[in-house]
Design a protein around this nucleic acid. Structure first.
Lengths: 107, 107
DNA sequence: TTCTAATATAGCCATATGGCTATATCAATA
DNA sequence: TATTGATATAGCCATATGGCTATATTAGAA
């Protein structure tokens, strides 16, 4: 792992929105349209965050039909020495989504 | 650990200069006048970085005579889930300092 | 007390960043 | 094919950031 890439990965994690996205992905893969109502910011803003996370190799993407699902790259998180165990539990966000019928289940 | 403080600590680590300072402090406590020649940036710039690291509780300071020595706050690094084991070895920087007679030893 | 070395603070500037709206792209469906 | 829903990209704007110089502060030495 090149040093500047390590620093960039940490900087990328160091934004509250992106860090919470990481915490959410730790529980369940997500697509952009699920994250938008959770954060209450615009779809392009979420897309930009995902792009940045992807660029730092912290997440991977997989298209499923019209959705793009994002997953944690746990190997990369391991490589930069970051442990997910210290992140808060945001599972209630998914309960909220489910209540509103906004959970996207695929396959 | 409050979530925004966690994010701020990661963001603070995510600057190459500060991350290298953390790696250096992992080997040996340092004062500002040692870090200046290592990084080749101005003394106020180093001071500002130390101030930011201190503000994120990542380091502590202790004045010893005219010097201020900075130490890692290992408990805080533990709390944010960051492991020092993945940082490169920068011990040669101290060898260089020693060669130039710039190592500050106190007590 | 006066001078010097180490450190911190103030304030400037160019760049990066995180939000936004508008628009393009891509996949599924009518 | 035409439309609709999901996502990405382009480009704007206000704020944060990391460098700098100038200056203040603090501690030790002359």
């Amino acid at each position: 792992m090149e040093f500047n890439k390590l620093a960039d990965a940490l900087k990328t994690l160091g934004d509250p929105t992106r860090l919470k996205i990481i915490a959410l992905l730790n529980m369940r893969d997500c697509c952009v349209c699920e994250l938008v109502p959770i954060f209450g910011i615009s779809q392009p803003s979420i897309s930009k965050h995902m792009s940045r996370l992807k660029n730092a190799d912290l997440v991977t993407e997989e298209r499923k039909g019209q959705w793009v699902f994002y997953s944690l790259n746990r190997a990369q998180l391991e490589d930069i020495g970051f442990s997910l165990n210290h992140l808060p539990d945001f599972s209630s966000e998914f309960d909220e989504l489910a209540k509103k019928g906004l959970l996207v289940t695929c396959e």
